[in-house]
Design a protein around this nucleic acid. Sequence first.
DNA 1: GTGAAACCTTGATCTCAATCAAGGATTACA
DNA 2: TGTAATCCTTGATTGAGATCAAGGTTTCAC
Lengths: 186, 186
Amino acid sequence: MDALTRYLEQQLQLPQEEAHALLRHWQKPKTLKRGGFLTRQGQVENHLYYIQEGTMGIFYDIEENEQVVGFGYADTLICSFPSFIRNYPSDYYIQALSTTELIGIARSDFYRLLGEYSRIEHLWLQMLEEALLGRIEREIDLLTVSPRERIQRLLNRSPHIFQLIPNKYIASYLRMTPETLSRNMK
Amino acid sequence: MDALTRYLEQQLQLPQEEAHALLRHWQKPKTLKRGGFLTRQGQVENHLYYIQEGTMGIFYDIEENEQVVGFGYADTLICSFPSFIRNYPSDYYIQALSTTELIGIARSDFYRLLGEYSRIEHLWLQMLEEALLGRIEREIDLLTVSPRERIQRLLNRSPHIFQLIPNKYIASYLRMTPETLSRNMK
DNA sequence: GTGAAACCTTGATCTCAATCAAGGATTACA
DNA sequence: TGTAATCCTTGATTGAGATCAAGGTTTCAC
């Protein structure tokens, strides 16, 4: 049983029939080297990806600076959601931070399956709820004034990120410079 | 035809049958004076509310300070979503910024209707998608460094907020002091 | 294994928004 | 309509994090 099957059936609790229906449409693996783009700015995101191995960063250019807005790592889904959902060109770009292997499912297949299998639709609804709650938590993190406190919150919520991702990206994600992160980690 | 019916059928494009099913469970109006609480910290949010008239603020205490994280006004839904969805005590509190009239639907009724009417479930899914995209946009706003730029983004996206809500709340929402907002509005 | 690139740390300086303060304008409601 | 409370504005000062700079360390690819 491969990682995606395990993810769908065990982690997401999807019944076999639905898991199989999804798996049939998942495409052949894609490998990216560090620095390689999964999605570029201006490009429409036509796939939802599952990361089999590696680490990725989601970026957005704010006021001419590259800002990190999220990470991806093994056993998580990744894509430019606004672009995937709205079928618009993406403002975000997604890059491999280390060699990464992914598989994707096309938007058209995905939304068709939502219509065909109410359990998949229900699962997607629950995932959207979770994603929304995650964003709401993230908002509090960003509103927190003290850099030290922002670091602490991330350490509590996602300690593994500090093992996986270079600090300079984490600093950007936490709305501070690498210097400030360094000075507040001790 | 009242405002909620219009909202469900026209704005949300819900068929009559489903709109009626929802409407039956919507409870009698509730009026709050300026400063009155819709939801308190620590209280479980058991209802989803529709604002018929007035303005509301969603607050969160960060590092002992009251932080505004959102607004509500006529013809929008409001509640402490994390609490409503997860059935946990709310970290947020919701207060009327002016005299406000609302009607609510109980969580249990709401989720039962989701199960009974796939069109309602589908609509809720779409609303969650929209809410998620809204949060993602909001994240970029918060990551923007320059206060002037943050103000500009809100002015572009939601100019009506500046008509409805006192500037001091908007300042907090934009992660700045009222002084900074004032100095950067001209 | 080795060299080059990427990353982290520490120090010195600077900048811009927060804070403190006070007067004036609006708003709410009795 | 009067009056108190709330809100907005402007000025002066302060402080925390950004920036600039440079040395040392780790990581990665070949």
